[in-house]
Nucleic acid binder design. Structure first.
Length: 871
RNA sequence: GGGCGAUUAACUCAGUUGGUUCAGAGUGCCUCCUUUACACGGAGGAAGUCGGGGGUUCGAGUCCCUCAUCGCCCACCA
């Protein structure tokens, strides 16, 4: 059969993925083996696969595939998140295109549209993951709004309410005027913007005096309840008991005194708008001021504003500035850098708003989650995120969990008799509870809270609810699969998700939800911007896979992705991955093209096999260590070098027979064994290629995906070192060929003086790779020859007629100078009493060895130079 | 404003308790080579005052101080 020169990923990928599915390798049921579990960070149903997902899921797949080979019962649970705000926004937009307003629909009608949308688009991203080779247990695919999942969420809500951890109250919250819902603090991003600071003067009632304040939001003067100054501010003490008049509307408000006000800032006078600023609210509360909410939910001005009613807050800002200026109230404006909060989802500028919402008390509740991370029961990789985590946890605030949306789990609070309510799993239970208060209540009288829960209120129990551990805490699956092993996700959702899962884990399982958290970096584009769905700057991963193969893309992502480091994405990395695929493919092509016969095994092959067996064991050890430290890119690099350098450049170059000659059966057999081992090591990183070659080597039942992960063994380090030295000898010969332009077909003789190292065993290899006719041991150096040194052995290639004496002497002189300098530094170190007295014995012995070594090199070099100069 | 982390070759990063020739890897770059698995390749090469300055030590990329630059997280100063 003829095998193409380049590897074609298309042939392997779909074929093997289907095969693995058919064989059921991805599916997991509890059994006697130890479980290895990962729950996927459920991507939003609104999302399509982007580079962040690629990185994340490749890492998860690597961990799962390796664990599977190590004999664990692996279970990778996939699924999607209903993403309440994002999805609702998409559905609303889609309906709007059809001319349908959300307000035209009943809740049920809207939800039916939303589920239609979810059914159409929601599975897309999971389908894309299969292209990447993700070995998820697809039979376990979950959605955060599946009936059982929602039921678990509601159960948790009711439970926490009963425990007194959930309460309802009027608080200052973050209002998103675009989505028209409350947000948690975490959903608000503070951005620096250039804005203006407006200086506005207020007339003081009953005097000609004016009082000037500074504000970035002049439109909010319509909601002012007071002007506040610092009681220690001598400029304003005389205003005690006076009133100010709000410009344009003429409303009279008191001048109040509070030390909160910074005398240095602006004019030292602060307008107080309790409805639209958290600080003003607190001052207003303290001084018992009127709260005037001048904004509607959509960010337009309300009737309470009196002016500009129905106009947008930003339009009003400009308009009111003009009007104030016209009437002489605007003193001046200044350029000003300040920070505004915007909605993480809609990018709308957040309004602080006083509103009735549901909250979860976090302070005490989160304590175990903090402790168990700080004492490494749960390990973060890299550990620097422990700091960030701690900082957030100790400053944790109550979590606003209600959202004024329809898409999500509706809050199970049922109202009756006006403001009275009960919290219960079902309306029937609620009725029973309500009847205790008022026996006349009927089920029709109960009205469920319109709001839904924050999306993260469902995803924080994800590792438990996917195994039904909330509804049935003692079921077999949860006890088997929980706690999960690795959580692999981005640091951007450390608080949104990771921290809260840990909290929920200790609350509902009394146990950690996962043992290790691997926080990836963010994938950035070439301008250093975060790649994300909202920016739309991510290359299409499916196109990349088509171009470079899934394995190539996986390798490309992993090579540059040490834990926690951002990676600027460069397509060249995928190219490197593809080239690597091809390298392995061609190594395989070479081997399968060999003609096997009973001829004698060459000495060089014998030595190469022994060496490579040691080398592979050493590398397996390195790879295992890297994995245990979650240094996945290092594990891959070890594998990469083992294959490219050790296997291809050395092992195969040594063992491959001369052109047209057959290979002996022992070497052939051994080579196949080595190749198989290598493919196993490669499998977690490059599943398709490894499976493809595994089966092309020979027909067999067993698939590599479930083969055993190779174990490391005793390593003969002396042998490895000898081989290293040997490679330097070969490099020396190649160097001389290159410098002197000696073609490979010209066979050379290599002469060695007192060649004492054990690498005599490796002479056969040197002869083969150096294209030598022989290696001779000599006692005196030849009169003129090219030469090089490896350790303290001197090698010669005698070709007197072509040698460039001047260049050769120059080269030797350079080497001599280096060694002299080196000797000097070693000697001075050894003369230093401080060093000799305080350095450990081993270090001193090493220095002495170095000195002896340098001395002997200097001696050799000096005499060599002399002999050249004489000739 | 508070906290955390980083700064090592053109790029992306290793460098474990200070001590072997410790200044490394991969990519890229330069030179040569279409040789018989692979040009998605081979052989060789150049390349860094380890951000600046100070200190501790016999010895510092590694520990301490300081400055600079960058990044991240948190935060209610108009």
């Amino acid at each position: 059969m003829s095998i193409p020169k380049t590897y074609n990923p298309r042939i392997a990928e779909d074929k093997w993925y289907r095969h693995w599915l058919e064989k059921g390798y991805f599916y997991s049921k509890p059994d006697k083996r130890e479980a290895f579990t990962i729950v996927i960070p459920p991507p939003n149903i609104t999302g399509v696969l982007h580079m962040g997902h690629m990185l994340n899921n490749t890492l998860q797949d690597v961990m799962i595939r390796r664990a599977r080979m190590m004999g664990y019962n692996t279970c990778w649970v996939p699924g999607t998140d209903h993403a309440s705000i994002a999805t609702e926004a998409k559905v609303v937009a889609k309906l709007a295109k059809k001319g349908i307003q959300k307000s035209d629909l009943t809740r049920e009608e809207f939800l039916s549209h939303a589920f239609d949308w979810k059914n159409k688009h929601g599975g897309m991203i999971l389908k894309q993951l299969t292209k990447l080779g993700a070995s998820c247990d697809w039979e376990r695919t979950k959605f955060t709004m599946d009936d059982d999942m929602s039921e678990s969420v509601i159960k948790v809500f009711v439970d926490l309410y009963k425990k007194g951890l959930i309460y309802r109250g009027v608080r200052m919250i973050n209002w998103d005027p675009s989505a028209q819902t409350a947000l948690s603090d975490e959903e608000v991003i503070h951005k620096e913007v250039s804005s203006k600071l407006y200086y506005i003067s207020y007339n003081i009632e009953g005097s000609g005096e004016k009082l000037t304040i500074a504000t970035t939001r002049p439109e909010t003067i319509l909601g002012d309840s007071a002007i506040c100054v610092n009681p220690n501010d001598k400029r304003y003490t005389h205003l005690k008991g006076k009133n100010a008049i709000i410009p344009l509307i003429g409303k009279i408000i008191p001048v109040i005194f509070d030390e909160y006000v910074d005398m240095e800032f602006g004019t030292g006078a602060l307008k107080i708008t309790p409805a639209h600023d958290i600080n003003d609210y607190q001052i207003g509360d303290k001084h018992d001021l009127e709260i005037i909410d001048i904004l509607n939910d959509d960010g337009t001005l309300s009737k309470s504003a009196q002016l500009y009613v129905g106009k947008d807050r930003f339009a009003v800002r400009e308009e009111i500035a003009l009007d104030l200026e016209k009437d002489g109230f605007l003193v001046k404006t200044e350029e000003y850098q300040n920070k505004v909060g915007v909605s993480e989802r809609t990018n709308a500028v957040i309004e602080p708003k006083l509103s009735m919402q549901w909250f979860c008390k976090m302070k005490e509740f989160s304590k175990p989650a903090l402790d168990h991370v700080m004492n490494d029961d749960i390990k973060f990789h890299p550990s620097k995120f422990k700091n960030t985590y701690r900082h957030w946890m100790v400053n944790i605030k109550d979590w606003c969990i209600s959202r004024q949306l329809w898409w999500g789990q509706q809050i199970p609070a049922f109202f009756y008799d006006g403001n009275k309510f009960v919290v219960a799993q079902t309306k029937e239970e609620a009725l029973t509870l309500a009847k205790k208060e008022n026996p006349n209540i009927t089920i029709e009288d109960l009205k469920q809270d319109e709001d839904v829960l924050d999306t993260w209120f469902s995803s924080w129990i994800w590792p438990i609810s996917v195994f039904d551990g909330i509804r049935n805490p003692d079921n077999k699956e949860i006890n088997y699969y929980y706690p999960t092993n690795d959580l692999i996700t981005g640091p951007d959702i450390l608080f949104f998700w990771v921290a809260r899962m840990i909290i929920a884990g200790y609350e509902y399982r009394k146990e950690l939800p996962f043992k290790d958290v691997y926080l990836t970096g963010l994938v950035r584009d070439k301008q250093g911007r975060k790649m994300s769905k909202s920016l739309g700057n991510s290359p299409d991963p499916i196109e990349l896979i088509e171009k470079y193969g899934a394995d190539g893309v996986r390798v490309g992502m992993l090579l540059c992705a040490p834990a926690g480091n951002d990676l600027p994405f460069d397509e060249g990395l995928c190219e490197q991955g593809r080239n690597f695929s091809n390298k392995i493919w061609n190594a395989f092509r070479l081997i399968q093209g060999w003609e096997v016969s009973d001829c004698e095994q060459p000495e060089s092959a014998k030595q190469a096999i022994i060496w490579f067996e040691n080398k592979i064991n050493k590398t397996i050890n390195e790879i295992d260590v890297s994995f245990s430290k979650y240094r996945i890119s290092e594990a891959l690099m070890s594998t990469y070098r083992l294959i490219w350098d050790d296997f291809c450049s050395w092992y195969l170059e040594i063992t491959k027979p001369n052109y047209g000659s057959p290979i002996d059966s022992i070497t052939y057999q051994k080579t196949i064994e080595q190749l198989e081992k290598i493919l196993k090591l490669l499998h977690p990183f490059m599943p398709f290629l490894s499976e493809e070659i595994w089966h092309l080597i020979k027909e067999r039942e067993e698939d590599i995906i479930i083969s055993n992960w190779p174990k490391d063994a005793e390593i003969n380090n002396v042998l490895l070192e000898d081989f290293e030295n040997m490679t330097e000898v070969v490099a020396g010969i190649r160097n001389i060929r290159k410098e002197q332009n000696i073609p490979n077909k010209d066979q050379l003789v290599l002469e060695v003086i007192n060649h004492q190292t054990q690498s005599n065993n490796l002479n056969a290899i040197i002869i083969k790779l150096g294209k030598l006719s022989s290696i001779n041991t000599i006692s005196e150096k030849p009169s003129s020859a090219f030469s090089f040194m490896v350790k303290s052995n001197e090698f010669f290639i005698p070709i007197s007629d072509t040698i460039d004496l001047v260049a050769e002497i120059k080269k030797l002189q350079k080497e001599l100078d280096y060694n002299k300098g080196f000797l000097k530094s070693v000697e001075s170190k050894l003369k230093n009493e401080g060093f000799v007295n305080s350095a450990p014995e081993q270090i001193i012995a090493n220095e002495k060895n170095k000195m002896a070594d340098a001395k002997s090199k200097i001696k050799i070099l000096t005499s060599k130079i002399a002999s050249f100069q004489n000739s």
